[in-house]
Structures are given as C-alpha cells and as structure tokens.
Amino acid sequence: MQQTRLHISLFAALGIALVALFLVDLSFGAISIPLGDVFKTLTGGAPAKTSWEYIILDYRLPKAITALLAGIGLSIGGLLMQTLFRNPLAGPDVLGLSSGASLGVAFVILGSALLPAALGVFFTSAYGVVIAATAGSFLVLLAVLAVAQRLRDTMAILIVGLMFSSFTGAIVGVLTYFSSAEKLQKYTFWALGSLGNLPWDNIIILGLVLLIGLSLAILCIKPLDALLLGERYAKSLGVNLNRTRIVLILATSLLTGCVTAFVGPIAFVGLVVPHMAKLLFKTGSHKILFTGTLLIGAALMLLCDTFTQLPGSAFVLPVNAITSLIGAPVVISLLISKKKGIFS
C-alpha cells in the first residue's frame, strides 16, 4: 500500500514536471517569450506582442507536441524491447530498428525514381514514409529476433543489432551513391533529425499511429509481466508466446518507425528512459513502468528540445546531438555499475 502511494505521488510529480517543461519549451528560443504570455496564448488570449502568437502557435507548439510524441514513442518502444529480449541494454537504436527505419526511408526518398510515377508520389508522401519506416524496422526486428532465438548470451544480441545497423547503413550508402544531389540533400536533412517544421497534418498522422502502437503495447502488459520470469515460465503461465512476440514487434515497429520517419533517427532515448523509470519506480510491474516511461520519455524529450535552442540566440543544435550527449554517459555508467539486478 505504501508503494502504491509512492507511485501515485511520483506520477503526480512527473505530470507537473511534464506540463512545466512543455511551457518552458514554448517560452525558450531565439526570442524568449515570458511564461505568462505563453500561457495567455495557449488559453486563447492575446500576448503582449502579436508576433509572439505566430511564433508560439505556428512554430513552437507543433515542435513541442512533436517532441512529446517522439519521446513517448521511442521510450515505450525501448521498454517493450528490453523485456522481450530480456536485455537491459536493448533499445530501438541499439537493436538496429532505427537503421531499419532509415533504410525504409532511404528506399522511398532515394529510390522513388525507380518506381512508377503514381506509386512514387504516394511513397514520398507522409503516409508512404511512415509505412516504409515501419516496414523497415519491422523487418530488422524480425531478423534480430530470429537470430536472438539461437543466442543465449544477452550481450551477443547487441552485437547482432550492431551488425544489422552496419548492414543497413551499407545499403543506404549504396543507394546514396546512385541518387541525384537533390534527393541526397533531402535524405541528409532527414537523417540529421529535427523536431521542427512538421505540418499539423503529419503531427496528426504521427499521433494516430502512436495511439495504435500504444494500444497494442497496453494489450501486452500482462504477458510482459510474465516474460520477466523468462519465456518458459511465461509459457507455463498460459502466455501465447508467438502471438505476444508478434504483437510486441508490431507495436515497437509502429512506435519507433513512425517517430523515425517524421523526426529522423534519434539515439539513446529509447534505451535510457525505461531505465530511469525502473530506477525511479523500483518495480517490475509493466502497468507502472508503462505509465512512468511514457511520462519520463515525453518530459525528457521536451527538455532535450529546450536545450537545442540556446536562449537569446538564433542558433539551433540538432536534437540527436543533445540526446547522445545525455545518453552515452548514462549507458557507460550503467555498464560500470554492473548492479546484479541489471547485469547478471
């Protein structure tokens, strides 16, 4: 009971932090807008300067919402992978999912000239990119899982993910070699990753696809708990392993594939956030971890987005740089600490 109360207060604290970070993200940027005016604009009032209204509603609000959605998608994807692969270091980028999504996007951006005109137009649209990225990560994940079945060593699975990343990277390299400068530029900009400049239509698509992915993940909460005992115990508890695996892979591909399609590959979020949730909530229950990961993922991504725009300057850092700056040291410290519960 004491634990439940602790969890509820943690959820409340995270919720408040999330709202605060959202407002701070809207207020920071090339032009700093006071929080009061941000609040006024969001509630339909008029801020002190009319230009602020445009900046907030047309530029910063879509960017903040994209950050929030991307954080949720990648973090939940990471949580599902860590339990499915029984590996604390699994994550969408580590297992090669992001590279799979990149490969899908590379095919449609760089290879669209090879398709018939009508198909080419469809596949370079927002829908086409989402489908390609999701399919790319789905295929890579299926391949990694097939190999992982033959490996008992959890660290070996990470090497396999690394190999798939380099394999897909090589294919992208070959594709870029054969494509025009204009398409190459388009792909390069995508690969740098950016939370901004996403039209509202695309944000709605992103939101809807994430909703499907999250719903599939919620359906798997009970089998995910059983998987904490290992696959044989899960099976003895009546879990349909094959179906659970497929649903989890589908959910993860949708979550990470569509985020990657719209904002580019973003490293470390999917790996680090579930750990933060596990450390904070100190539980194995996926009901709690799911909610915690969702809140922390959204908050962390908003924080990273805030850091990309240095206050008072027009200079914007790539978001991928920020997540890697935070993520890489966290992973190394996790490896060094070698707590028995994390690595045994």
Binding site: R86, L228, L229, G230, G284, G341, S344
Partner: peptide, 10 residues
C-alpha cells in the same frame, strides 16, 4: 525450472 531468471526488478 532450473533455468536462471532474467535480470530484473522483481
């Protein structure tokens, strides 16, 4: 079973 439990917070 004889197999070890996977690492985790249980």
């Amino acid at each position: 079973l004889t197999e070890a439990l996977p690492p985790g917070n249980l």
